[in-house]
């Protein structure tokens, strides 16, 4: 299964909980099995995006660095 993101949300400069809200808003529109990437430099995103995945039973694939900015990949599994 591809781990390449189908879509990237640019939440750079946004404070918590805005990156998680953006992820939750966009999530229903991506197909099951696809990966969505959230670019977020708020330090809370590093904890809150994996926590959101756990609460929503979605798959957290981990954090990556994109052009020096932190990013988080999530796969829709249901």
């Amino acid at each position: 299964m591809s781990t390449e993101p189908l879509e990237t949300l640019d939440c750079l400069g946004q404070r918590c909980p805005l990156p998680v809200i953006a992820l939750a808003r966009r999530f229903p529109s991506i197909p099951v099995g696809a990966v969505i990437r959230v670019l977020a430099d708020d330090p809370a995103a590093a904890v809150d995006i994996p926590a959101w995945c756990r609460m929503r039973a979605q798959q957290y694939l981990g954090g990556v660095s994109v052009d020096g900015s932190p990013a988080y990949d999530v796969r829709r599994v249901s």
Partner: peptide, 17 residues
């Protein structure tokens, strides 16, 4: 400091709200 609680972060639980 606009940094979330180190306790909540260490647990891996939601830090906002």
């Amino acid at each position: 400091t606009l940094v979330p609680s180190h306790v909540l972060a260490a647990m891996g639980v939601l830090t906002h709200g």
